[in-house]
């Protein structure tokens, strides 16, 4: 180690100090509470060891909402990535007018999430929502966007995509701008088709940005809450009840803080495991793509 690196640890102090005080303490407290039967109403807590965990893990409800979460999470991220990437390529291709488009397309990402949920409700609400009202005017009876179990999932995914596709688009567009244009030109002169250029020149060069966007989105999408709460409240039935909806119900509605904390910890473990393996997979593709 070079001598100047010795003071390096001090650089960690402000950030990690803050994290320890402000974030790790509540996190630790939540983990601690997860071992208690703690009903916030009466304030009495009884230590029950792994009781909350055993109870939760044996519930069909937990697994059902976990599946719903995973379906919605992967559906959203896949859609966001596909559309975001296509938009980024289109912007890259347009060049001159791209700036205006990139500004306009980024707008939905700026909207406050609580407000965005309201906007989307005005679009998707049955009968008097804009989509329905327009189609009904032309005597087309649209599907029940928020009321049909399958469509409700689709709507929720679309809603999430509306907000987060711009983020992916922007990151990938920026990454494309950083691309060495001469590589593409060389390939074009060689007579390579657009598709081949995309596969063999552009995508390999974008792998780090792709991994970045997918990981960031996957991480956040599991906390996905506001939109579902406003749009469907978890319904119809339990079709859009995600794990965060369940946590909200336990912690904020029923005030069963111990059990809610245990659910939070379970979610954390499952999602972390899931993401770790996805990251592994993406990274190995990355290495493969590098060669």
């Amino acid at each position: 180690m070079v001598s100047w690196q010795r003071g390096l640890w001090l650089f960690f102090v402000p950030s990690f100090g803050l994290l320890a005080v402000v974030l790790l303490w509540p996190l630790g407290y939540a983990i601690y509470l997860s071992f208690f039967d703690y009903f916030l109403g009466t304030g009495t807590r009884t230590f029950i060891g792994l009781g909350n965990y055993i109870e939760l893990l044996s519930e069909a409800r937990l697994w059902r909402s976990m599946w719903t979460t995973i379906i919605i999470a992967f559906g959203s991220v896949a859609l966001e990535f596909a559309v975001g990437f296509a938009l980024a390529l289109a912007l890259y291709r347009l060049n001159s007018s791209a700036k205006v488009f990139s500004v306009l397309l980024f707008l939905p990402h700026i909207v406050t999430p609580v407000v965005a949920a309201l906007f989307l409700k005005w679009m998707l609400a049955a009968n008097w929502g804009l989509v329905d009202a327009t189609l009904l005017t032309f005597d087309i009876t649209p599907p029940d966007w928020l009321g049909d179990p399958l469509w409700a999932k689709v709507s929720v995914i679309l809603a999430d995509a509306w907000i987060f596709t711009p983020l992916i688009m922007m990151v990938l567009y920026a990454a494309l701008q950083g691309l060495d244009a001469s590589l593409i030109e060389a390939a074009q002169i060689d007579g390579a088709s657009n598709w081949r250029i995309l596969r063999h020149v552009i995508i390999p060069a974008l792998i780090p940005a792709i991994i970045f966007t997918i990981s960031v989105r996957l991480m956040d999408v599991f906390r996905f809450f506001d939109l579902i709460y406003v749009l469907t409240g978890g319904g119809p039935g339990t079709a859009t009840e995600t794990i965060t909806m369940y946590t909200y119900q336990l912690g904020f509605r029923m005030l069963e803080v111990g059990k809610a904390s245990a659910l939070g910890v379970i979610t954390l473990v499952i999602v972390a495991a899931l993401l770790l393996s996805i990251n592994r997979a993406l990274n190995s593709i990355y290495r493969g793509g590098d060669r």
Partner: peptide, 15 residues
């Protein structure tokens, strides 16, 4: 760091 980020925010609200 990212594991911390994934913890549901609503469980941090009470602490």
């Amino acid at each position: 760091l990212f594991t911390i980020r994934m913890f549901p925010h609503m469980l941090l609200a009470i602490p």
